[in-house]
Design a protein around this nucleic acid. Structure first.
Lengths: 244, 244
DNA sequence: CGTAATTTTGATAAGCATCAACGCTAGTGG
DNA sequence: CCACTAGCGTTGATGCTTATCAAAATTACG
């Protein structure tokens, strides 16, 4: 077990795992499935009986509206767990699709009950992850409801910048961002046209440089100020429950 | 135990409880505290060490923005658990305030760990409640990002109409709604002025009648259509895990 | 190298915010 | 019981932010 899997690494952020914990987690990653970019994992309304761990690639959850538009709710990075939202539901509440080629591992809801039975630490960590996802959603909601187009865009990109630091997927001040302007607009409640204009403005101001799938932040702190970014919602952990 | 407490009744919606489960839950409601309307339970940034069960009265969580505006994130009804969001955090991410006089019961995060240890059923139910709250947030996010002022307002009121049915706090087609137009605006990302205009329009169309703290829905289904209301996100339950 | 998808740019318009003034209602003290 | 006051709700006028439509420019891809 020299090379930790993505999810084990993710869980270790929350607390120390016993060998038994690691074995239980490894069980959840039994059946890795390769998935192509743009492929849909499930649609709103599908029967919901399993979660998914995302081992490789980016994904997002979305909702189609009656007027044909689409809202992107969450962007998942490698190591994230997908579908926690639907634990208490029989149907999927949102669709999930890949942003690029990747690997996912399915495991049934019932197996989570097993985990609850076997490991107190993992129970607490799963609960913490659910609470962390709630915090991300809350911040997104505030972002959408109360901020300008400039702030929304700055906020999303800065959030990605911070989240990618944790997974060590950052490259200096530059990150890979496999999202089209259409995706960004769908996530931010903006038209792709307005996303384009706003990105142009940021470029002219030297706040953000975008080329192909990369984004460079020449002055990350200036971007954070523009976004009125507060990072409290990303600083989670439950160590204190166990090591007093 | 003839008269179930609010929270036990709430939990029973998710599954059958053993006597031990009920005893554990009763422990969480040990120290009821009376709270006046408009009083603040906690502020963003306060140390987070406990949850709260809301036994009586309505409450809401909110965030103050730098420009002085306020976003209301969640509206809590009697029986709801407050503060689950911060299980994995040391600080409160949002403030919480009462909408009217009420009663709350505090219990520390650590006691939840105890519950995890003692009862598999309650572990699953707590997880289900967290997932249900995530579903509510998701729907609110979609509402704010993608719908018009008319739809947002119709959606919020119809959601309350449905949630109040579950707690049997409905009175024919009329509900009590202790929210000012300012509150509604803060929840919907609208100015109170625009809320007023929209309510007037609904009144003239016979969709909604508002007087003092009451709202009447002469034709609930018409309102649901106006809101493009999908009720999947309210139909939760985890019975299927336990009785086969 | 050709074709499709994405991004950019310009012009116009919708939706909602903001400001300001006025009316109503509920709660208060005389 | 009534007059007074403060908060809440209503209405009108104006303007900003962002959507929408359409077309051109660029990039990605087979």
């Amino acid at each position: 077990m020299s090379q930790d899997s993505c999810i084990i690494c993710h869980f270790k952020h929350y607390g120390e795992l016993s060998d038994n914990d690691e074995a239980l987690l490894a069980e959840l990653e039994q059946s890795p499935t390769e998935i192509k970019g743009d492929q849909i994992l499930w649609q709103e309304g599908d029967v919901a009986r399993e979660f998914c761990t995302l081992s490789k690639g980016w994904a997002y959850s979305f909702r189609h509206m009656e007027d044909g538009s689409r809202q992107i709710l969450e962007i998942y990075l490698p190591g994230d767990i997908i579908g926690l939202r639907e634990f208490a539901f029989k149907e999927r509440l949102t669709g999930v699709a890949m942003l690029e080629d990747g690997v996912v591992c399915h495991f049934p809801h019932r197996r989570l009950i097993n985990v609850f039975r076997e490991s107190l630490t993992l129970s607490a960590i799963f609960f913490a992850i659910s609470s962390h996802q709630q915090a991300l959603l809350t911040e997104r909601l505030v972002n959408l409801a109360r901020r300008s187009a400039r702030q929304r865009l700055a906020h999303l990109i800065y959030e990605m910048y911070v989240r990618l630091e944790r997974t060590k997927a950052r490259d200096g001040n530059s990150i890979r961002l496999p999202l089209s302007q259409q995706h960004l607009g769908d996530a931010l409640g903006l038209s792709s046209v307005h996303v384009s204009r706003t990105l142009t403005a940021f470029r002219e101001e030297g706040l953000l440089l975008r080329s192909r799938q990369r984004v460079e932040l020449p002055d990350p702190e200036a971007l954070a100020r523009e976004a009125e970014f507060g990072d409290a919602y990303l600083n989670d952990g439950i160590d204190h429950f166990f090591h007093h």
